[in-house]
Every structure is written in C-alpha cells, then in structure tokens.
Design a protein around this nucleic acid. Structure first.
Length: 855
RNA sequence: GCGGGCGUGGCGGAAUUGGCAGACGCGCCGGACUCAAAAUCCGGUUCUGGUGACAGAGUGUCGGUUCGACCCCGACCGCCCGCACCA
C-alpha cells in the first residue's frame, strides 16, 4: 500500500489533461452551453490564498456543470493595466510592461498548478495592444453616439496616485487604492454617459434572479432614483442678468411648499459663482464653504454655513410671497439642480440652518393626534406622515395626494415639471496615467476634438515609459504626442489621458467566446453570453459589476452584442482570513515564525525562535502590513493542491469568510489520504456476518450521498457537499468483507471518485485509474441516483408527547396516518407513558414525526 | 441618520417547504498500536444533576402565533456590511 504522494501524482495528471486537451472548449451543438467565469486577476506578482479560493470555487462549479453534460467555457485572462506596475517602475526603475508580463508568467504557472479546468488557449491580457485597440474602437463608437464626452467639472483628485477617480472609486472620502483623502479639482475630463441607462440599469436588476439580493440592493441604492418636481422660482430682483429670469429648484417634497422659508444654492452653483465674481465677500464665503471635507466624520461635525445674497425670489404659488436666496454649504451642485427650497419644519438640515440664521419655521404637515393650534417644531423636524395644513389648496390632503396636487398646479402654471432624479452620475474615465489604454483622440488647434481613424488603431503606448518623475509620462512624451490631424493634416496632439482600468474589465467576458475575432466581440459571443455563473468579491458590487452592466447595454445599442445583462448568475465569495500575531512591542509576526502551544483547551502563541509569548489577534483579511499572509504555493508544496482546494471550500459556506488554519489544512490532507486508502487497499476491520444487510446499507448511503451532494452543489453549499463525502468515506472504512459488500463497495468507489472530482481533481483521477475507470474522470458523467435507494423504505418516526421526545416507532415509508397511529398506540413504551392521561390529539406528519397532545 | 444582513457547543459550521437542534470538520478527553514519539485506528465530547439507566435546560433577550418554532410575527440588545448634508 503506497502512501499518496501529491508531488508526483498531481503533476502527472496535469500533464495528461494538457496533452489530451481535456479543458479546451470546442463547439458542440448537442450540449447546452455553460459559461463559467471568475473575476480575472490583476497580475500583482504572486497568487494569494484569496485567489486560490475564488478560482477553486469557480472550478468546482465548472467541473460539476461539465459532468452534468454542459458544454463548458471556462477561460482566464489578466486585468493587466494599473498602478502597481507604475509604482514598481517608479521605485525600481523596471519597465511596467516587462514587470507585468513577468508577473503573468509566474501567476499563470501558479494558477495552472491549482489544476483548474481552464481553457488556456483563450487567454489574453488587457495590456495586449490587440485588446486595447479594440477597446479604443468601441470607445470611438460610443463617442460618436454621444455616450462618451468631454466636459469640465469638479472631479475627485487622488493626491497620492496623482489621478482622477470616479465617484464609485471614492470610499469614505478616500481613494479606493491609495486611501488618501480625495480633493476636489476642476478639470476637463472624459466621461461615459452611464446616466443614460440609469432607468434600465435599475429595472434590469429585477431580471437578475440569480444575483445576491444584497448586491442588487447596493446597486439600486447607488443609482438612487427619486421622483419629484423641478420648480422655477422667478427672481424678484437683484440677480445677475446672466442668471436668467428664474432659479430652478428640485424637490421630492412639493407638498411642503407652503412651509418654505428660504431658497439656497450650492457654493458651486452658477449664481453663486456669478455673484462671487463681483463681490469679494461672496467669493470669500464660497471659498470657505468648499473647504469642508467629504469624509464621514467631517460631514457629521460640519456646521451649516450660509450667506444671504440679498436676492429674493417669488413663491411659485403666491406672487406676493418673497423668499430670500442663500448660498449654503450643505447644498450639493451635482444633485438635482444644485438649488433647494428650505422647509425647516419638515427637513432636519433645513431646520438646523433656519435655527442658526433666524429663519421662520412653519409646519405644514400635522401628525395624527396633534392639535393644529398647538403643534410646533422644536429641535427635530417632522418627517413622518400626517395631514397637510396651512397650505391653501392642499389642506386636508395626505402627503402623497398633496405631492400630486402640487406637481399638477406647478405644471398647469408653467412653473415646473414632475422630474425623476438619480443619484448616479456619469462615469469619469480619464486617468492621468501612463500604463493604461490611451484614449484614441487627437486635439487639433483647427478642428478641435478628432477621433483617431479606425485603420490607425490601436493607438499604442510608446515602447518605453518614463516613470522616474511623478505625473503622466504620456503628457511629457513630445514624440508620442505629436501627430498630424487626421482631418486637416495640421500639427496636432494626442490625448494623453488613459482610460480607467475598470473600462478594460467592463467587457473582457464578451471577448473570451471568440478571443481572436478581428472585431471586439466575435460571432461566437451570441452562443455563450450571458455568463452563466460569475464569481468574485463583494467589493465590486457597485464598481465593476455596475460598469459591466452599463457597457454591455451601450455595446448592445451599437449592435455589437445581443444581450442586456452580462452575468446571469453572480456569486460573491468571502475572504480568507488568518489570525494575527504580534509581539509585546506591537510588531507583527508572520505565521511561519509562530509556534502554537496547546494547554488543555487554551492556545498560546510563541515566537518559534525565541519563545517570546505573542499576542493572538482576531482573524483578519490577509494583508502584507499585518504579516498574516499565507502563500498557496507553500501550502501546496506541503499538502498538495487537492488538500488546499478541499480546505478552502470545506470549513465555511462559500459566501462567508473562511479562517485559514494549519489544523484545517491538515484535516483536508487527512481526508485525501483516507480516500486514497479506500481505493488502494480497502481496510476490513469489521468481521462481516451480515453481508447482505451491510451491502444494502452502503448502497442506500451511496445513492443518498449522490442526491445530497448534487443538491449541495446546485446551491453552492460546497462545505455541506464535502461533509457528505466524509460520511461515505467513513462508511466505506467500516465495511466488512464479503461478496455482497464488495459489489456495493465497487459501486460506492466509482461514485466517490466522481463526487470528489470537482474538488480534488488529481486524487479523483488517480482513484478512477485505480478502479479501472474509463477515460478521464474529469470528463466522466456525474453519477445518477436511484430514487428508490436514496430514500429509506423504513422510517424511524420520533414520537413526542406534548412536544417532548418520548420514544420512536418504525414505520414503512409513506405509511398512512392510521397505520402509524396503530403502531404508536400499540408501542409498550409509549403506552406506559400514557397511563392515566387522555389523548386530546394525535398528529402524524407523514415520514417525519408523531406528536401526542394530552389533556 | 437611511438601507441590508447576521446572532446555534470550546471553535468553523449543519439543520433550504414549521417536524429528532448540534451533521461534518477542528480542538479536547480516554483507549489501542509503539521502547518512545509521530502517523494511524477505536470510543467519548451542548450544558446541569446523577456511577448509571435517566431527568431537566438549551439556537442573543423578552413576548406572541402553532399540536410543534433556530425557522413565522412584534419589541429590544449586540455585531457586521453598504450609503450618507442626495433636498
């Protein structure tokens, strides 16, 4: 009996699969397609355990679906543009392209070592000129249709990464990569008009039945549709001429218009800017109001600041009513119209502002049970339900009816229109970076903005990029920039901004079906899209996953795609965490340098070299700074790839975090060996005297296991699937010898090899070969179960008396209520307990339970 | 503040139509094998009382619905996540 040696078995099978082309996808009209995809990695250098779990999970599902008869597409590529390459270039003087391609080599080998059923013939990287050239081609199409445009505006500036960020990339007022506080800057930038699809992106969420509710909710909130009224307040005097005759205000509470006490505009509002130009006091206020940060703490503590412009507007429903116009720091220019009307009684922010500046507070919504004569607002605005009062034509209406009435009145008087407003803003895609996809645009002094002609694509990056100085190397590469205008031939300049790398990842999945097609998305895409199952981290809930949904729609409207949604199914996997260890002085210590000591039921951590006691911290996401990173390659060296795969999937449900522990991997390693022993030299510790009975029991377990594992696989409950595998392995181990048992054993082993194949493909192949299985188990069909064996033909029914378990009876499966009743009442143990009590009810739940209710 | 999720043994977690709570793994305890250790194997392991058969309690807390609740309803407590001066 040979000990299972992954270091020889695993490479052997990977070579065999590669030589046979097992994982290469070929067209097969007889089988339904299945497109399995995991979010492609950024080639940072080495594979992380988090990657290993993500790809193992995707691979388990992909292999399972293939075994179930689907024609599988399971490709891999590289999200290869991005800042780490530039940072490496700046710090170590390496070429970002060489650095990236080198990392890809290393990581491809690491991924391949995981034994993933991936069709590597389709691989590409987003930094391949072929790929980004095609991206430039569709960018130009979008530009011609007005879906890509340039505008000047306030943008999020990351002072550390020295680039602009999209709103989705600002987390808590900080850059998503650099964690530096984001500044506001006025720049001319490229945008993609995602807002044109706001409605469709929101409504489309309802069609995504196989997406987590959480992600759909996050996207819905991010899009943030609200219905209200855009209302014009005519100026009564004092407004600059260029501001026009009226000020537009957006509100979702037109029912409270009679509670208005002021109008306020954002510091960036054109009116405020016009006033600032002629009045230094206004200019000074605007400067102060803009200074406030955007982080949580700053907003919470931010004081309401206002400046009374002296301008007055006329209330749209009452020509005699004048309202003052203020500039206020809490009004946002990029939501609605950048101007509000303040109703302090029913809006907390307006109330704080009114109290500070002595503006009137008039309630117009009366909560139920309040007396209109005495109801007053103190420190808290009333935002709940009630009846409208103090409001002329709306008096007596509820809030919803009053909103409708106000909108109707405003529209009839040509004072405004009902309007839908979104929180979502257009996607700023300009990045002042050198290692990215160049925006294929030429700036001509005569012709203005000119697109690069399609036949000149791709606009390639220069051969070498100089990152020795901060800032965008393209912007100072005069030779690269200089170009003749394609329209008039005059000397012109290339656009030096590159596209946000989230553009690169917003369509790569549509390229894999036809990865060498001359057009961006080849004809094969129609056969495979949408992706059946997409797997990745929750952190992309409103980034990548929203951008991809938008780009697919934009390309569809270009006639390049036929689907509305990129990903029919989505699964967000949890992180891999690890305990942290630190010295008394606070220094972090790597797990490899820690020796764990068990004392009874408590654990202590010691420095392996010095014996110094260490502080054990909570499990956290693996990070270099906390030094709690474990490299999957190191684990695979010790325990093999299959044990590594089994462990990352066995300990927690896939959508939850899993804590990496050495004990856990060792458990998976034990399982690998236990399985192998059953195939290699089945133990027979129990003398078999009841062979037929044992054989039947094993057959029942085998078929029940197929059923349960299949159900668990379908529901992505891989941890439960592995638990069922443990059970059948234990049963095999306890099986005695004999003719009948050996037949049952052969069946169980054949099933077991196929059930473990998605999780531990190398071990499964070796086992399959050992029992003389035909071909590769990787291509073997998933076992089917016999329903008559998967269900027991005799059930043990617990018998409860008044809800407490007091015994059990054995009844044939499906036994009638009457039959079970007879069994229960004739059971001596139950009868003994029922002496002297009356049975009020006897409830029989078929095949489940019996409950006796006594009086 | 708004929205959402989650609270089950020492630990990770099962219990996917309201029907035996704690599957499976880890850890721990005891035993076998061994000169010894590792590995492996066998048994035990929710808590309390009892040598034991057994009895009682038990899924964050309190209450409700039900013959029956980890599961449904209400209130509360705690933790996690997303958004956030969005009019």
């Amino acid at each position: 009996m040979a000990r299972y040696d992954p270091s020889t078995v695993e490479p052997k099978w990977r070579t065999a699969w590669a030589e046979a082309g097992v994982d290469v996808t070929r067209p097969d009209p007889d089988r339904p397609t299945y497109y399995a995809l995991e979010m492609f990695p950024y080639p940072s250098g080495r594979l992380h355990v988090g990657h290993a779990r993500n790809y193992a999970m995707g691979d388990v599902n992909a292999r399972y679906q293939r075994a179930r008869g689907r024609n599988l597409l399971h490709p891999m590529g590289w999200d290869a543009f991005g800042l780490p390459a530039e940072n490496a270039a700046a710090e170590r003087g390496v070429d970002p392209r060489a650095w990236t391609l080198g990392n890809i080599e290393v990581m491809r080998a690491e991924l391949q070592r995981l034994g993933l059923a991936i069709d590597w013939t389709r691989e590409f990287a987003t930094c391949d000129p072929e790929y980004y050239g095609l991206q430039q081609a569709w960018f130009l199409k979008l530009w011609r249709r007005g879906l890509a445009y340039r505008k000047e505006g306030l943008v999020n500036w990351d002072p550390v990464d020295m680039t602009v960020l999209a709103n989705e990339q600002v987390i808590d007022g900080r850059g998503w990569r650099s964690d530096a506080p984001v500044e506001r800057k006025k720049l001319t930038q490229w945008f993609l008009r995602i807002t044109a699809y706001a409605d469709e992106l929101l409504d489309g969420l309802e069609t995504l039945d196989h997406w987590p509710e959480k992600v759909k909710l996050m996207q819905a909130n991010w899009i943030g549709r609200s219905a209200g009224l855009t209302l014009r307040f005519d100026f009564a005097g004092g407004a600059p001429a260029e501001s026009g005759p009226a000020l537009a205000v957006y509100t979702t509470r037109p029912d409270t218009l009679y509670g208005a006490s002021f109008v306020a505009v954002a510091p960036d509002h054109p009116l405020a800017e016009a006033l600032a130009e002629r009045d230094p006091a206004v200019a000074d206020f605007v400067r102060r109001a803009r200074r406030g940060g955007t982080s949580e703490a700053e907003i919470e503590s931010a004081e309401k600041l206002g400046f009374d412009t002296g301008i007055e507007v006329i209330h749209p429903f009452d020509p005699t009513w004048r309202l003052p116009v203020w500039i206020a720091n809490f009004v946002l220019m990029d939501y609605g119209t950048g101007a509000i009307f303040g109703c302090p009684a029913h809006d907390q922010r307006d109330l704080e502002f009114a109290r500070k500046y002595g503006l009137p507070v008039t309630p117009v919504v009366l909560p139920a049970g309040q007396d209109p004569a005495s109801f007053a607002i103190a420190d808290e605005a009333w935002t709940g339900p009630g009846r409208i009062y103090n409001s002329k034509f709306m008096d007596g209406l509820d809030i919803e009816a009053a909103k409708a009435a106000a909108i109707q009145r405003a529209e009839a008087a040509n004072q405004g229109e009902g309007a839908i407003v979104y929180r979502l803003r257009d996607w700023g895609v300009s990045r002042q970076r050198g290692w990215g996809c160049p925006i294929p645009i030429i700036h001509c002094p005569a012709c203005g903005i000119v697109g690069v002609p399609e036949e000149e694509l791709p606009v390639r990056l220069p051969e070498s990029l100089d990152f020795s100085r901060p800032g965008n190397p393209l912007a100072r590469d005069e030779a690269w920039k200089a170009v003749a205008c394609p329209r008039c031939g005059a000397a012109a300049e290339r656009e030096t901004d590159t596209l946000d790398t989230f553009v690169d990842s917003s369509w790569y999945f549509a390229r894999f079906p036809d990865p060498r097609a001359p057009e961006p998305i080849g004809a094969e895409a129609a056969r495979w899209l949408p992706v059946d199952q997409y797997i990745g981290g929750i952190e992309h809930a409103v980034l990548h996953l929203l951008y991809a949904r938008f780009v697919v729609r934009a390309l569809r409207d270009e006639g390049m795609l036929t689907v509305d949604e990129p990903f029919a199914g989505l699964f967000t996997q949890g992180m891999v965490t690890h305990e942290t260890y630190r010295r008394q002085n606070g220094e972090w210590v790597e797990p490899g340098q820690v020796r764990m000591v068990q004392e009874g039921s408590s654990r202590r951590a010691l420095d392996a070299a010095t014996g110094e006691p260490l502080i054990i911290g909570d499990p956290e996401k693996m990070s270099k700074s906390k030094r709690n990173v474990v490299a999957p390659a190191d684990i695979a060296d010790r325990y093999g790839v299959d044990a590594t795969r089994l462990f990352v999937l066995s300990d927690s449900p896939p959508d939850r975090d899993v804590q990496w522990t050495t004990a856990g991997v060792e458990g998976a390693w034990r399982l690998v060996n236990r399985i192998w022993r059953e195939f290699d030299a089945p133990a027979a510790p129990v003398p078999s005297k009841d062979g037929a009975e044992q054989a039947l029991a094993l057959r029942r377990l085998t078929h029940r296991t197929i059923k349960q594992v299949s159900e668990a696989m379908d529901g992505f409950r891989f941890n439960s699937a592995i638990a069922r595998i443990y059970e059948i392995v234990s049963a095999l181990h306890a099986l005695g010898p004999g003719e009948e048992t050996e037949r049952a054993r052969a069946e169980a082993l054949s099933v077991l090899a196929r059930l473990i194949a998605p999780f531990a493909p190398h071990l499964a192949e070796e086992c399959w070969r050992r029992i003389g299985g035909e071909g590769f188990v990787a291509l073997a069909p998933w076992p089917a179960f016999d329903p008559s064996l998967a269900e027991d033909d005799e059930k043990v029914l617990p018998v409860q008396i008044d809800g407490k378990r007091r015994g059990e009876v054995r009844a044939p499966a499906g036994a009638s209520e009457e039959a079970v009743r007879q069994l229960v009442l004739s059971d001596p143990e139950i009868a003994r307990r029922l002496e002297g009590v009356t049975i009020r009810r006897l409830i029989v739940v078929r095949d489940r339970i019996v409950n006796l209710v006594t009086g």
